[in-house]
Write a protein that binds this DNA or RNA. Structure first.
Length: 269
DNA sequence: ATCGGGACCTGCTTGC
DNA sequence: TGCAAGCAGGTCCCGA
């Protein structure tokens, strides 16, 4: 579910309901996520939540003693609730605020993570991320440097969070289709012009998806429970055998780096 | 240094 | 109908 647009959609959904509120309790029902949830997170209790931000696919919830770092993994999602029903099997964490509002974290596969850091941006997991793809620092000069000499496919390269954080399997395929670059092309072989196109395609794809409220796949819902609307806007992802929206030839599927990739063999070179 | 693969989990879909 | 295999939005870490 969650790539950058879904995480950003989640952030926008929960922020107005939670910021400036004092946390009363943190209920951890299952601490075994990707890493065990550290006891340190309990240090936030009694403190006021500041401005929620995002770095790559991480949400940062700042309190005076430090920040919660939250990654949704593959299947995680959050909802804010007023009158919380009894937690279900996969509702692993609740942040309970003094107002009665509650943030509930659900994650069937438990690939997500909840960590604590005094200086969030200095945490090794965040410090090693590439520049935000929607910032000016993410440009063709940057990609030229990072792709230099790379034999790895461009699809795998843009899915590497240390190069481009936030682009996952869906938006990698979509961005490559937009830029008309074949996903298996060696990253280091891309011309300057194609890198410019790729940068623009990634920015546009992410921006459009955020505007649509994220892609709705399976269990993804926005923080208010409404589904995202980008799924119908996907041009190639999950559409093997369907007609390419540009040339009408059948969309192909190929596995790269153990992940399904979708592309048009005619439009993408 | 770069890479490919395995690992971590559960649930849904597919095929026999 | 039942069961097992295969696949799914992520990414760290290991060994080659």
């Amino acid at each position: 579910m969650p790539e950058l647009p879904e995480v950003e959609t989640t952030r926008r959904g929960i922020a107005p309901r939670l910021e400036q509120q004092i946390i009363k309790r943190i209920d951890v029902r299952q601490s075994r996520l990707r890493w065990p949830i550290p006891d340190e997170v309990q240090g936030c209790v009694g403190e006021k939540l500041g401005h929620i931000s995002r770095r790559g696919k991480y949400l940062i919830l700042p309190f005076s003693s430090g920040s919660l770092l939250w990654h949704l993994g593959m299947s995680g999602h959050m909802r804010t609730l007023q009158n919380a029903p009894a937690p279900g099997k996969h509702d692993h964490v609740d942040l309970v605020f003094e107002s009665g509002t509650l943030l509930r974290y659900t994650d069937p596969r438990r690939f997500g993570a909840l960590l604590f850091a005094r200086e969030p941006l200095e945490h090794p997991l965040l410090a090693s991320l590439g520049p935000e793809p929607l910032s000016d620092a993410f440009n063709d000069d940057y990609l030229k440097t990072r792709f230099n000499g790379k034999k790895q496919s461009v699809k795998q390269a843009i899915m590497d969070s240390h190069i481009v954080p936030g682009v996952g399997n869906i938006y990698a395929s979509e961005s490559l289709f937009r830029s008309r670059i074949h996903p298996a092309t060696a990253a280091g072989k891309l011309s300057r012009q194609r890198l410019e196109r790729l940068v623009m395609a990634i920015k546009d794809t992410l921006t459009d998806a955020i505007a649509a409220g994220g892609t709705s796949l399976r269990d993804f819902a926005q923080a208010d429970g409404k589904p995202g609307y980008f799924k119908q806007a996907l041009r190639v992802y999950g559409r093997a055998g369907e007609a390419c929206p540009i040339c009408s030839r059948a969309i192909k599927q190929k596995t790269l780096g153990q992940r399904a990739s979708y592309y048009c063999g005619h439009c993408q070179r």
